[in-house]
Amino acid sequence: MEDYLTATLLGSAWGLLTRYLMLKSDYRQFPGYPHGYVTHLSLGLVASLLGSLAIPAIFEKEFTAVTFLSLAATQFRDVREMERKTLSSLDMTKLVPRGPDYIEGISRVFEARNYLSMLMALIVSGTAYIFSLQAAIPVGLAVLLLAIRLMRGEVIQDIATVRPGEIRFKGPNLYVDDIHVMNLGSEGARQKVMERGLGVVIEPKDDDARSMLANAGQRMAIAHDAALQLGIYKDVDTPEFMPILRRDLDTGRVVMVIVPIEMDMECLLLAVSRVPVLESAYSRPLQSRAGAGAAD
């Protein structure tokens, strides 16, 4: 009896720790309010409690208890729904919206992190129960590090090179390098873009990257993250200063024009390089025979 208790407690604590570390590991994806912390830590605690109970339940031949795990899965699907709803409704009041793809990605991550805490709790409590408490700690550390490493997705700099681009106007038409971005009619707006605007060129490293950058949701995510980190010279009634990303159809390069508050090119390049590659944009045409053959 005593063994169950220690194993379960250790497992739950470990699961909760996992959830906490994952809340901290990704500041951009986290809502940031204290209430958000409470919600997600509580759900993490529930998940890890359920996970840590599974192995002792099996040893007690209480097989029905394990079906609780499936109940938990339903619960955590609601987490995704909850995050999606919250973030989508908040997105409408953002100057530079995240976009549906980014929100879907964040929601999925939040759901998956609960399963991860559950799994962590299961592994740690199982090890503690079957082997010993001393064995559980190193095993827990190992799987935790592994999980954090495996869950880290790719970022833009893994799939593309990000470099400064030159902004210029031909009449009312705005170009970055040779790529047409938009037609800007107002003289005042053109002056502001010339004074304060920064241009960035994102060059895909291969055909897979090219197709990922083609995704409009991925481009919205880049605009949102860049605007969030450097500030945006825009208000609700100045839509002309919305950061815009356009694709060069011939080469697959993507250019961005942004009018930030902080005109720091180094930081802008850094911000763009660190934007996560979204799950919905992630594609590998080179893996297919047709895709690889067509690419030569």
Partner: peptide, 12 residues
């Protein structure tokens, strides 16, 4: 543009 939230485009 300020009132409607539209963007001005120049047809040249």
């Amino acid at each position: 543009t300020r009132i409607t939230g539209g963007v001005i485009h120049d047809l040249e």
